[in-house]
Structure formats: structure tokens, C-alpha cells
Nucleic acid binder design. Structure first.
Length: 458
RNA sequence: GUGGUUGUAGCUCAGUUGGUUAGAGCGCCAGAUUGUGGAUCUGGAGGUCGCCGGUUCGACCCCGGUCUUCCACCCCA
């Protein structure tokens, strides 16, 4: 116990059983992305700090893992400059690279860097780990996987519509009941402007975003704390209490924020999006939630967030439109929109709700009992023939007692065991034991693959 | 980043207001059953009580530090 090795805080090993279930999730997401025409992309685990810093706000910068420079980074540095230097100064001199914090910014970097090779609109999906130097809790890790799909170089709201369809497709295949919340940053800007605080949109949205968690009184306190004046809060109030369908909220808003051109634009976008959704309804409920803001401040239009209906956990998928992301890298005027599935939280939800199918992935289907001795050559041939027939087969590597081999099959959940000892082989036969029912059938060796395929299909 | 919480066998947890060889259930291994798993019975292995240091005649227990877990805030997937 004492000197056991361990992994760093907030990181995890994934056992074979866990990997089979994780791959079940990844496979469904990957298949759905590709069904909608998205292409795979991977980027390095580390990026230059200049790519990363300043993209996620002050809070985000603090959470980026920095990689120490290789070699003697102290060489040529006067000891006197180190005395009294603050950590920001040292970090700048000792570290030039960081672990990626999300997949969207590296994607934007990729697009700008390869703009001449890409034909727009460019759709890509990316399933890779990201790292955040956060304090871990349940459902919050320092290394976790994101599954992103983004399309860049198209302003059309058809993209938003299709991304929502993808979300719906994935969660209905995973059998997770969800609610898809949408909103639009331009509407939020319109609300802020109408309330007379257009310049305080960040403070206002951050506070409003907490509505569900802390209630309307809590939001009021939060707004006050952020220095929003009581008369502005008074004027924000009607927006927070808007109820009803998306259509009725939109028409209500239309009057309220008539004076804000940006707000009107946001409303028009939402109306268009909901008209598409009306034509081709989703399985999950799509709700216009005016309190939805999302922290990442590069979003400029539609914002999307998905919550599980049957379990209290943070959002399991989110996304939105960003107009200016590639602008930071010197390519202005290219609009993008994307979503990101949180695979680790989806895993937690599915585990908690018991939604994983009993057999996930390609576990062994048949174990061939090893009798050793003269039979071994025949047993190898059986295993080869079964694998040729596409049946996942293990030949037990050691000729140990049958009890041990059967226990192994039981522990590994292997559904069928083949017993072919000298008795059976003399007659050119083998016995198949169904481990679930205990039923045993003896047949000729040539009939084995067909028989097992038969049992499998039931 | 702030405040709090947790850590005893592979797993889930007892325990001692500081006193010689630290317990249970489950799991694991062996046997009852030398070609048949999941049930039962019998036996066995496995712990410097997270780590480092301090107080004490003596620490798993008290104190400090550290790592880890989880929680609230912050932020987010």
C-alpha cells in the first residue's frame, strides 16, 4: 500500500471494461459526425502559448497547463533579473508551450494556418483530450475528452439547425433524455442595451446564467455585486420572467427590445432557426432559454447547451457561433459555429442511469479449452477456423485444470466455451457449452463456425 | 485561486477516549469434485492503518506539513 504508484490528481486510467464503454460512446458520436459530412482532424497536445493565451479570458489563462522549456533556460539570464521577479515574468521566460485547453482554438489556428489548402465551408470533427489546471471534483477532471464538430466559413443558420440535429441524433442513440437549450448572444446584447447597460453585457450575462442555480433573487444580488445599478436591474426583470413557448417568448421580446438593432437581428436568427426545427422536429425538447449565457466569451450569435433530464450534473454538450475567432489569428470575417460533447460526463450519466448495453464492444465470444498434449495442434486449428469466420476467439494459453479455464470464461463474461479433448477429437467432433444456459451441444468440427454464428445471432 | 472534507486488506467499511500479535463482509487462492464456471462447506494468503516529520516511555489514534478524494465558491465539459 505504502509506495504504490499513482497518476496525477484529476487524471484517470481507463480499464478495459471502461474503455469498451467509452468507445461505445465515441463510436456513436463519430458515426453521427461523419453522417452529417464532418471530416476528422487531429492537432497536437501542445500548442504555442501565444496561440492559447488571451482566448479564454483571465480565468481561462490561469487554467492552462504550461510546459517548461527544455534545455538550460537559465543560460544568459542575469541572476539579478530573477531577484524579485514575479511569476508572470518567470513563466514567460521559462515556458513557451502549453497543453491545449479546448479543441476550438487549435482548430481556429489550423484554419488560419492552412487557409489556402481548405475549401470553405469547412466541416471538421475532432475527438481528443484537453487539459485544464482546475481543482478536480466529481465530473470535473484535469484531463478529459471533448468531441467537437465545427463548420467554419458559413453564416447560414442551417449549420446551427444541423448541429442541433446531430445533438438530438447522438443522445437518442445513447438513450439519454436531454433538454437542448438555445439562446442568442445578440438577444442578450439587445436586452442589456434596452436596460440601459449595453456596455455591461458580460457582467449581466454571467449573472443571468446562474438563474437556474440561485434563483431570481440570487441573480439580483449577483448583479448588484457586479455594480449594476438597481434601476437597470429593474428593467432587466421582465426578461427574466418571460415564460411560455419559444414563439411567445420571441414575440414578447420583439416589442421589448424594438429599439436595439442587434437584438432584433438576434431575434430574426432565432425565428429562422426555430422555423427549421418546426419543419423537422427533434426527439429532445429544444427550448429558448433567455438565461442561457455560457462563459466562453468568443460566442457572438447562437449559443447551445444540453442538460440531462434524469440526473443533476453540469452540461453534457455545448456550443455556439463565433464570428471573430480566426480574426485573432489574422483571418477576419470568417464565421464559425460548433458543438462539443463532454464524453466523460456523458459516461457518468450513462453509468448512473444504467444505460450501457450489456455487451459493449468486441469482447471475446468463444474460449477454446486447452487440453495440451497431442490435442493442442487440433485446438489451434479450431481457433484459426473460428477467427477466419469472424468470431472473436481465445485459446486458453495454459493446459491447466478445466475448473480454472471455466472460471476464467465466467469471469471474462465469455458466452461460449469449446471443449475438444481426446474423446471428441477422436470422432472429429467438439462440444460447445453455452455459459449462460449451461446447455452443451456436440457436433463435427466443420459445423462449429456456423453453429456459433447461429447462437450469436439470437 | 479561496474555504472545508476524506484516506484502515483487491473492494465496501468497522475499530481503539494513545498501551503487547489491527477486524468483518465481499473478492482472491487451495481443497471437498484428478474433463466443466456461477451454489455450499473447509482451510489459506493478503495491511510498516496515504506519505513525511513532531509530541510521548509508547502513535493507526494527538499536532504540523504534504499528497489524494469529495464538497461549496469561482469557472466549466
Amino acid at each position: 500500500m505504502a509506495q504504490k504508484p499513482s497518476v496525477p490528481r484529476g487524471t484517470r486510467d481507463f480499464s478495459p471494461a471502461e474503455m469498451l464503454r467509452r468507445n461505445y460512446i465515441f463510436d456513436i458520436i463519430r458515426r453521427t459526425f461523419s453522417l452529417y459530412g464532418y471530416l476528422p482532424l487531429e492537432t497536437p497536445a501542445m500548442e504555442n502559448l501565444s496561440t492559447l493565451l488571451g482566448k479564454y479570458g483571465e480565468e481561462g489563462d490561469r487554467l492552462i497547463f504550461r510546459i517548461l522549456n527544455s534545455g538550460n533556460f537559465l543560460s544568459g539570464m542575469e541572476p539579478s533579473t530573477l531577484v524579485g521577479a514575479d511569476s508572470a515574468f518567470l513563466a514567460k521566460h521559462f515556458s513557451e508551450k502549453g497543453l491545449r485547453y479546448d479543441l476550438t482554438v487549435p482548430f481556429a489556428r489550423y484554419v488560419v494556418q492552412h487557409r489556402n489548402e481548405i475549401s470553405f465551408p469547412f466541416r471538421r470533427y475532432q475527438i481528443q483530450p484537453v487539459w485544464r489546471a482546475d481543482k478536480p471534483q466529481k465530473g470535473r477532471y484535469r484531463e478529459f475528452f471533448q468531441c467537437d464538430a465545427d463548420v467554419i466559413g458559413s453564416d447560414s443558420l442551417l449549420n446551427e439547425f444541423e448541429l442541433i440535429r446531430i445533438i438530438d441524433h447522438v443522445f437518442s442513440e445513447l438513450k439519454i433524455n436531454v433538454i437542448i437549450k438555445v439562446n442568442n448572444r445578440k438577444i442578450l446584447a439587445g436586452i442589456a442595451a434596452t436596460a440601459g447597460a449595453g456596455d455591461r453585457i458580460t457582467d449581466i450575462t454571467v449573472a443571468i446564467d446562474k438563474l437556474e442555480k440561485i434563483g431570481s433573487e440570487g441573480v439580483r444580488q449577483e448583479l448588484l455585486q457586479r455594480g449594476i445599478t438597481p434601476d437597470v436591474i429593474e428593467r432587466l426583470d421582465p426578461f427574466l420572467s418571460l415564460r411560455g413557448s419559444a414563439a411567445s417568448k420571441l414575440s414578447g421580446l420583439k416589442r421589448e427590445i424594438a429599439a436595439s438593432p442587434e437584438g432584433q437581428k438576434g431575434l430574426a436568427e432565432m425565428e429562422e432557426l426555430f422555423s427549421y426545427l418546426g419543419m423537422e422536429p427533434t426527439e429532445a425538447r429544444v427550448e429558448l432559454d433567455l438565461s442561457l449565457a455560457r462563459g466562453l466569451n468568443y460566442y457572438t450569435g447562437t449559443i447551445i447547451e444540453v442538460k440531462a433530464d434524469d440526473m443533476v450534473i453540469g452540461s453534457i454538450c455545448g456550443g455556439g457561433r463565433y464570428d471573430d475567432l480566426t480574426g485573432i489569428f489574422g483571418l477576419p470575417g470568417v464565421s464559425g459555429v460548433g458543438i462539443s460533447f463532454g464524453a466523460d460526463r456523458i459516461y457518468d450519466v450513462m453509468l448512473h442511469l444504467g444505460l450501457f448495453p450489456e455487451q459493449t464492444g468486441a469482447a471475446t465470444e468463444v474460449l477454446v479449452i486447452n487440453f495440451g498434449g497431442e490435442e493442442l495442434m487440433e485446438l489451434i486449428k479450431i481457433a484459426v477456423a473460428l477467427r477466419d469466420a469472424g468470431i472473436a476467439t481465445e485459446l486458453f494459453p495454459d493446459a491447466v485444470r478445466l475448473k480454472k479455464q471455466f472460471s476464467y470464461a465466467d469471469a471474462q463474461n465469455i458466452p461460449m466455451v469449446i471443449i475438444a479433448g481426446s474423446n471428441e477429437l477422436k470422432a472429429g467432433q467438439a462440444t460447445v457449452r453455452n455459459m449462460k444456459t449451461g446447455e452443451q451441444t456436440t457436433m463435427s468440427l466443420s459445423a462449429l463456425p456456423e453453429f456459433i454464428r447461429e447462437v450469436k445471432s439470437h
